[in-house]
């Protein structure tokens, strides 16, 4: 039982299922601005996050303070896959960049092929698994794959982070939450009407 709680992915059973279905819950960003709150290691930070799809279909993700000071400007997708256009010197650390890169890849469903590597069943849900860099991301749906439950990023054994967004798919989300399990780090985003 303890092992089941600690390593929830071990109890999942593979099954033949619609491998295309999770992609319908991919958030579709065009040019959205989010009021953003970040909690990290007991500290709180707020700002504005812009997610914009560029003409070459890459996404730019820019985070700045409300007063206009830029924290970072990243590009996702395209030939380079990921590019740091700018990051504030204080944040310019590999571990920070990699954590942010993983979080946004996970949310944008960037580099995720149309078909899942594996579909598994467990806890009354379907887990649509995709390899992402050295981790695995799981998009969890109901057993009919009609309803998106949440996304998880995990090692082969256990979840490291989870994300939820509503509405899921076919539009830009109004609200997004990303929460890490292995360290104190969460991001909440609320879409702003401009």
């Amino acid at each position: 039982m303890l092992a089941g709680c600690s390593y929830p992915y071990r109890s999942l059973r593979s099954l033949p299922a619609d491998q295309l279905c999770a992609s319908q819950f991919r958030p579709e960003f065009s040019n959205e601005l989010y009021n953003t709150h970040v909690n990290i290691s007991g500290r709180h930070l707020s700002g504005l996050l812009l997610v914009k799809q560029m003409p070459d279909t890459t996404y730019r993700v820019v985070f700045s303070t409300e007063t206009g000071v830029k924290f970072f400007d990243f590009a996702f997708g395209g030939q380079e896959d990921f590019k740091v256009h700018y990051i504030m010197r204080k944040l310019d650390k590999k571990v920070v960049i990699n954590a942010l890169r993983n979080d946004f890849n996970f949310l944008l469903m960037n580099n995720i092929p149309a078909t899942a590597a594996q579909v598994m069943k467990g806890n009354g849900m379907l887990y649509h698994a995709y390899p992402m860099r050295e981790k695995t991301v799981y998009y969890l749906t109901d057993t009919l794959c009609k309803k998106f439950v949440r996304a998880e990023m995990g090692s082969s054994k256990k979840p490291l982070a989870e994300a939820t967004w509503t509405p899921a798919g076919k539009s830009s989300p109004d609200s997004i939450t990303i929460r890490h399990h292995n360290f104190d780090f969460s991001i909440t985003l609320k879409k702003l009407e401009r």
Binding site: L33, H37, L192
Partner: peptide, 23 residues
């Protein structure tokens, strides 16, 4: 700041107060 978000910054000498809608 009142649109499109609420954010308040007060500078009072050496003290700064910030209210960002959550904290």
């Amino acid at each position: 700041y009142q649109q499109p978000f609420n954010y308040l910054m007060i500078i009072n000498g050496n003290n700064v107060y910030i209210k960002d809608g959550q904290q």
